[in-house]
């Protein structure tokens, strides 16, 4: 379970402030976050992932207080317990599909790359329909295939929480639905929690809950 209490965050140089008195998300829940640009949706994902640290308040994931962890602990927690899917996929162009999926295991000591992880990588690729693309460089893949690779990369460490930032934002309508299907299937299979920022209102019906961020957003002057 994810819980946020009395959270307050602002960027030092920007006229922006995010205040969330209380927010809780249950295990296995699929939550969509909507709101105007600059409302702090991505900032919340970064706060949940421990990339940003709040000035005040508490963030807990399964009773682990993210805000209390050191930098190194937050990194280890993030790479092993949280999967992140970016809007621009953020794949490494010099790596092939398999190496992109295995990438988190190569850049952190918190994850161990072994035979079972490699097998799981192949299974996951098969599940998301990119098994035949494993040896291809990411630059030769289509947009939809790239996002499937990004989902595989996020899912491979078997995280408890998946944070998706506009995961379907760069895809055509046909691909959007397919990718979301694949993401939902993968999340449900692993009983993970999904928190997805989206501007795509057509997809909202498929989520368990929708949080409108308008309520949390304040200009610095009025904050």
């Amino acid at each position: 379970m994810i819980s946020v209490n009395n959270l307050s965050f602002s960027y030092p140089t920007q006229g922006f402030s995010l205040r969330i008195p209380e927010l809780s998300i249950q295990q296995s829940e699929k939550v969509a976050i909507i709101g105007p640009s600059g409302a702090g949706k991505t900032s919340l994902l970064k706060l949940l992932a421990g990339i940003l640290v709040p000035q005040q308040g508490k963030i807990s994931i399964d009773d682990v207080g993210i805000h209390q962890l050191s930098d190194a602990q937050r990194r280890d927690f993030r790479i092993s317990r949280i999967g992140i899917i970016f809007q621009d996929f953020e794949l490494m162009e010099y790596l092939n599909t398999r190496d992109n999926i295995l990438h988190p295991f190569r850049i952190s000591r918190a994850l161990k790359l072994n035979a079972s992880v490699r097998n799981r990588c192949d299974e996951l690729a098969d599940e998301l329909g990119i098994a035949d693309k494993l040896k291809q460089l990411s630059q030769s893949l289509s947009q939809g295939e790239k996002q499937r690779v990004a989902i595989c990369r996020a899912m491979l460490p078997e995280p408890d929480v998946i944070l998706a930032d506009e995961a379907t934002g760069n895809l055509d309508p046909a691909n959007k639905s397919k990718i979301l299907d694949a993401l939902f299937r993968s999340v449900e299979k692993r009983d993970a929690t999904l928190i997805a920022v989206t501007h795509d209102h057509e997809l909202l019906d498929r989520f368990d809950r929708v949080i409108d961020f308008k309520q949390f957003y304040q200009q610095a002057a009025s904050a």
Binding site: R75, R78, I79, I84, F86, E90, P104, I107, S108, A110
Partner: peptide, 20 residues
């Protein structure tokens, strides 16, 4: 820069980036 940001976001330490 984007690539380095991404691997930071994934959970890579600054030390690992320097090692890379």
């Amino acid at each position: 820069k984007n690539e380095i940001n991404t691997i930071f976001h994934l959970g890579c330490s600054q030390g690992t980036v320097i090692q890379l």
